[in-house]
């Protein structure tokens, strides 16, 4: 079995030289995943964000992480392949190279022992370069345009769903009975005190005599 040191010293550099666009894609996917995890943890530790914002941004971060990975793998290599195919079809050719020479070069690739010329090596580099350029373009489209739009939509949906679930739970655990607002002047105690302090009651108290039966009659008249 290959040792770890040997793997990093020979196998990975070999892959970098042979397939630079693959290396750029897979390493980007790795770093963006690690970055997403770090950002998710930092959001949870942030004390200045309100709970609602924290939740929304956390969903967004986790969505970003998954989406970056999916978008990168879907777009980046596909764009790279398109770029190479364009170059092989004779588009975007550099100075001094004609479309016919590209066709000849592709024929030579299929023949074993065919002699490669200077122009052929120029075409090979050009095809590789177009592939790398298209891969980077694919990464830009995937990471900076497609992933942010989709993640915002997903984070919004997730946030709405969680709020709905929360409201449902509240409704189940604490049912609210229908109530009507109570007017202050309709409470019996306040009604009694207000009548005591009214002008009519003052006159009534002044007219009170020593005979209690008369006073009662006065009160209920």
């Amino acid at each position: 079995m290959m040792k770890a040191g040997q793997f990093f010293k020979t196998a990975v550099p070999r892959y970098v030289i042979k397939n630079n666009k693959g290396f750029l894609t897979y390493t980007s996917a790795l770093t963006f995943t690690v970055s997403g995890l770090g950002q998710g943890l930092s959001v949870l530790n942030n004390k200045k964000l309100s709970k609602d914002h924290k939740k929304y941004i956390f969903y967004q971060e986790m969505g970003t992480m998954g989406l970056n990975l999916a978008a990168l793998l879907a777009f980046s290599l596909k764009f790279g392949q398109w770029g190479e195919n364009w170059a092989k079809a004779g588009r975007f050719l550099p100075n001094g190279v004609k479309a016919g020479q590209v066709k000849e070069y592709i024929k030579k690739l299929g023949q074993s022992g065919a002699k490669m010329t200077d122009v052929d090596s120029k075409i090979a580099t050009h095809i590789k370069a177009t592939g790398v350029a298209a891969t980077i373009l694919g990464q830009i489209v995937a990471l900076n345009i497609v992933a942010p739009i989709v993640r915002n939509l997903l984070a919004g949906c997730a946030d709405r769903c969680s709020k709905k679930c929360k409201n449902k739970e509240k409704f189940i655990h604490s049912p609210v009975l229908p109530t009507t607002p109570i007017r202050q002047d309709q409470i019996p105690v306040t009604m009694f005190t207000s009548t005591l302090h009214s002008a009519k009651s003052k006159d009534m108290f002044e007219s009170f005599t020593d005979d209690p039966s008369k006073n009662v009659k006065e009160l209920f008249n």
Binding site: N20, F23, T27, P94, T125, V132, A133, Q139
Partner: peptide, 15 residues
Amino acid sequence: TNKAANLANTKPSMQ
């Protein structure tokens, strides 16, 4: 296309 050859060796930092 004339500058494209340099892109074949794009470094990770530039990417």
